[in-house]
Design a protein around this nucleic acid. Structure first.
Lengths: 248, 248
DNA sequence: AATATATTGTCTAAAAAATAGACAATGTTG
DNA sequence: CAACATTGTCTATTTTTTAGACAATATATT
């Protein structure tokens, strides 16, 4: 069976997603690793079916890796330099020897497909990291969360794709209120602030941050959270569901 | 000769550009008209050569219509619904009768090419309308500036593409200082304000607008402009060249 | 049981920015 | 040379942002 059937897929056009998660006060990105002689890192990506919108394709690709539906997902930029080819991947496949990659279910026609130049539509997703159980699919040997400040060198321009995604996230975090997609259902104000600090990579003033958040009128105050710490217990908050932008 | 040679072009991927101009206090868009039995309006667009980056392709397509190099041009969104096909165009070609469109230099293979679903990368451009001499190319029967508030119904989702482009322009006008690309070399403060009012479609306070603009420290004050009107002559200003973003 | 400590929630003062109102300057007309 | 329309700028007011302060409180310590 052909992996890449040009009859069913749009050629030379791909989707790559920067999946953001948040844990331990650090912004993270989900990065699969392709297991060849030299491990290759690559953003989770895929191709677009002929009868599938690009948004649905991005959603499908995301579901394959995270098991999640209902995630915040938005295109942010197209990457279309002429040097965007899968030469890294091909080199490694060739290293395997033809008989071996044929064994993996890869055909000559797949190599031809991959050899072409690709234009890639960049999407970024925001997920509650606790809800994700990363799945290994396709060529993946492994898949892991990496701190955004310590990403491995990835294939092609994927590191640059992350930079642009982060820039977009920073621009949208404030006025589109999308950050709560990175948090669990309930959270303390401090946790929200730490998330913002992780995204912007700079400290924020606690008193004014709290005021600004409450003034937005998007948070619902719940019961207190008793952590056992020797101090006043913080309130838990929930993002008002009806304020949640663009999730379907 | 084939018009659309799949060997040299990326298939099912196109570029469409919203070319903004400004005149008579109105924001305008350059729209070609395809001359068939029923005139069809369509954004200026084209395809991407195999050895050409998407930015260069957009630039080339723009140069073909406007004769301008050195224009502000930026991608803003990808449109990829499954119903994005050239059925309008095909219908009209078929109406011509096969022998006639063969006469136009269009081959059967071109029809096959056009029939497929297309993903389109939207670019928007800002030009000095006085410098543009719109050129008729390809299928165009005519090409004209249309007031953005009074655009004709265009093919596919091109009207929606303009809406998104305008939204992007509005978001970027203020903090990226790109508006001056729509004005001639020199201009009065009132002209800048009228441009801003045209883009945002709302009046702005004169005194505070002037202060804000001058505080930006991007304008150079030149000599006065004596119009012959019975009032104080306004100064001319020039946008400081070294502040101009992203033009090459 | 009283005190100490760390953190939270909120208030107020100060600074900065945005908005609104006012007026002098000036190029032309009558 | 007065009348007029528009421009450039200033000041007052309001709103927003930032910084500083302090009371409330959950637990640990004594």
């Amino acid at each position: 069976m052909k992996l890449f059937d040009e009859k069913n897929l749009i050629q030379q056009l791909s989707i790559d997603s920067v999946i953001f998660g948040y844990k331990n006060k650090e912004l993270k990105v989900l990065v699969p690793q392709l297991n060849f002689k030299n491990p290759l890192f690559s953003l989770p990506g895929g191709f677009i079916l002929q009868d599938e919108s690009i948004d649905l394709a991005a959603k499908r690709i995301l579901e394959e890796r995270t098991g999640l539906t209902n995630i915040f997902l938005e295109q942010y930029r197209v990457f279309g330099e002429t040097n965007r080819t899968n030469f890294d991947l091909i080199d490694n496949l060739n290293d395997l020897g033809k008989e071996n990659f044929l064994g993996l279910g890869i055909e000559e026609s797949d190599i031809t497909w991959l050899k072409k130049r690709f234009v890639s539509i960049g999407y970024y997703a925001l997920v509650d990291i606790n809800k994700v159980n990363p799945k290994i699919t396709g060529f993946d040997g492994d898949i892991n969360w990496h701190n955004i400040k310590d990403l491995p060198k990835m294939i092609m321009d994927h590191n640059e794709m992350v930079s642009y995604a982060l820039e977009t996230l920073r621009q949208n975090l404030d006025h589109k209120l999308i950050g709560f997609n990175l948090l669990p259902e309930t959270f303390t104000m401090k946790e929200v602030q730490e998330l913002y600090e992780a995204v912007y990579d700079k400290p924020l003033a606690r008193n004014n941050f709290q005021k600004k958040m409450l003034d937005l009128d998007v948070l619902e105050r719940l019961e207190k959270k008793f952590t056992g710490a020797a101090n006043k217990a913080p309130y838990l908050y929930r993002f008002k569901n009806d304020k949640n932008p663009k999730i379907d």
